[in-house]
Design a protein around this nucleic acid. Structure first.
Lengths: 343, 343
DNA sequence: TTTTAGCACTCTAAGTGTTCGAGTGCTAAC
DNA sequence: GTTAGCACTCGAACACTTAGAGTGCTAAAA
């Protein structure tokens, strides 16, 4: 399907006008914005052909045209002009990320907040995935007479901690033993190797010491399992309430989807590298059939590591959003890579 | 103002029916539920007097009655019967809290989630306040070649960590020095004493060592300051979308208020011990003029420590909510007290 | 063959009028 | 003090009208 230049320009005009104003676009309004002059009747003829091709839709017979999801797809693939990110936006992002640059989890929280604040959509980010990462170190810190914290560092740069409780007083010597034993047994293993069965066999091999260590072992298991799955940071869900094209029930459905981490995570995972726009039904999620997702994978040290995304109504300024997400995704990747390099 | 028993019963019936069905209550419906028999005309006479007293309102002349905020107040103070919490609800709460019993921050996150899940309102909880707490210990853990984590434990049982970065390789000896110096200088001080000025003078007293420690000192300052203010955990904001008496804009306004931690925190702080219900304008927050807040302070070791609360439409089953919050508040207090006692 | 002016047509949004029923307030009788 | 009865009020639902925006079609012009 190859559209004439004129059809392309008209389609682009419809989408630009519709995105800007949110109302069906009539033939007259289009005439005013075109860079060549034709009558509204000519535009109408073209519009009706574009409608026949399924690129535009009419809410009702005597209304203007609205882009269909197919129309948006063509627009994004071939017609859209990107709006480069402004210096102010760059500074905003940088200022949001800098304070938490050294802790991947806090960083990705900041990313979601920055993204939501800037775009006014709902934002998601995942922490760098550690499912294929190795255990780099396990640390223990006493936090009170009978509680201690275990911290697990992975080769993906993530660190997770968990506080656990013993029914005896903890001493520095005990923690040193925990540290020695667990580092000896765990460092270098893939995180995924730490399963309940593994912990059980580890306990067995420790003999009578395993009694002392049982709560520590459970904490290690817990912390390893939570390292495995990328954490999902959400922010700005509320922003969706302000779009009049999303009904209250649309918003509920989207929220509902966002509250199911596995599916959300799967949606973000299955995207290929760099940036990707999913329009309505392209998401394959009934809950998102009225909304678009713009997702970008970021990579750390050249390897795909996680994703950031926004979710909003199909009617959005894609040219701008894409630039912003791309910049943010690049920043995050660079920051995390730098963090890795010093390890 | 002393109402006759009959007026009291009628007022209670109006509120119970209205809370259950969400629609203005007519005189006939009231007759059916009263435990004595009078005609609807008699009820109407009573209703009109209750309206004159400002306890009931009429959306329009020919509609049934709806409780006014003043009516709810009287109901809660003198008419309401509490619904005791069910065994199932107790088990639900216990199961939500147990896994994170040893980390106050995680615990309070769990509290907000449990509260939101159970009541279907928006829930808030604050971590135990440490503004008057002392520093109990400062710990350091290496997290990578050039980053380490500082963990600050307070006498309120809270612990906060922060990762910081040095521009030289960190060794166990260096961390031991950090540990020795900072525990010596900080343990026993009130958290509030750790101000930028204090850190600056501390750095000065360290001579040339302060160069090495500067990022560690900044991290300590940061972590002390974030220990100071109670963290606010929010959950279930989305639940508010499902109440038809709250318009989209009401929800936005509530959300808006919830996103301002200082004001929210102030609202929760200024409540006295135990349970308190604020109806609409009693909150003194224009954003909450259509909603009610049920807040309960919890105490740790006999001392007031934090608050949990729900926010929902004025029309709610107060008898049930109050019981649930009371139970949860008691549980949390007990768990945190126990945690403290073993220290 | 393409473009355009003109016009009939369609559909919505907004306003008006009508009816129905729920619920009230009042009055007079109990 | 209570109740039956009745007139009254108001909103929800529906039908109807009108104005305006925008279309599609046709026939003439380029």
């Amino acid at each position: 399907m190859q559209l004439s230049t004129r059809k392309q320009k008209i389609l682009k005009a419809v989408i630009d006008l519709y995105v800007a104003a949110g109302e069906p676009v009539g033939s007259k309004a289009i005439c005013d914005t075109l860079d060549f002059s034709v009558s509204s009747a000519t535009v109408r003829n073209e519009l009706s052909e574009l409608s026949e091709l399924g690129l535009l839709e009419q809410p009702h017979t005597s209304a203007g045209r609205v882009p269909s999801q197919k129309g948006y797809r063509l627009y994004i693939d071939t017609l859209m002009k990107r709006t480069p990110i402004s210096g102010e936006e760059q500074r905003y992002i940088d200022s949001m990320l800098l304070p938490s640059a050294y802790d991947p989890e806090r960083l990705m929280d900041g990313v979601a907040r920055a993204l939501a604040g800037m775009t006014r959509f709902a934002a998601v980010s995942t922490t760098p995935s550690s499912s294929t990462a190795d255990i780099r170190a396990v640390q223990f810190v006493q936090t009170s007479r009978r509680t201690a914290m275990v911290i697990l560092m992975t080769s993906a740069g993530t660190m997770k901690s968990r506080v656990f409780h013993c029914d005896y007083d903890i001493t520095p010597e005990i923690l040193r033993v925990f540290f020695r034993v667990l580092n000896e047994k765990l460092v270098g293993l893939p995180v995924s190797a730490v399963t309940p069965a593994f912990i059980q066999s580890l306990a067995a091999s420790l003999g009578e010491m395993s009694m002392l260590m049982s709560s520590a072992l459970m904490a290690v298991l817990d912390v390893a399992q939570s390292s495995m799955q990328a954490e999902i940071c959400l922010d700005g869900e509320m922003n969706l309430l302000y779009y009049r094209e999303l009904s209250q029930s649309d918003v509920c459905r989207i929220m509902n989807f966002l509250s199911r981490p596995q599916e959300l995570s799967r949606l973000l995972m299955q995207q290929m590298n760099s940036i990707r726009v999913l329009i309505g039904r392209e998401t394959n999620q009934p809950e998102l059939s009225e909304s678009s997702v713009v997702v970008s994978r970021y990579s750390v040290g050249g390897k795909d590591a996680g994703a950031i995304a926004i979710i909003g109504p199909t009617r959005m300024n894609y040219g701008k959003i894409i630039s912003n997400i791309e910049y943010l995704s690049g920043s995050v990747g660079r920051m995390l890579t730098e963090l890795m390099d010093t390890e």
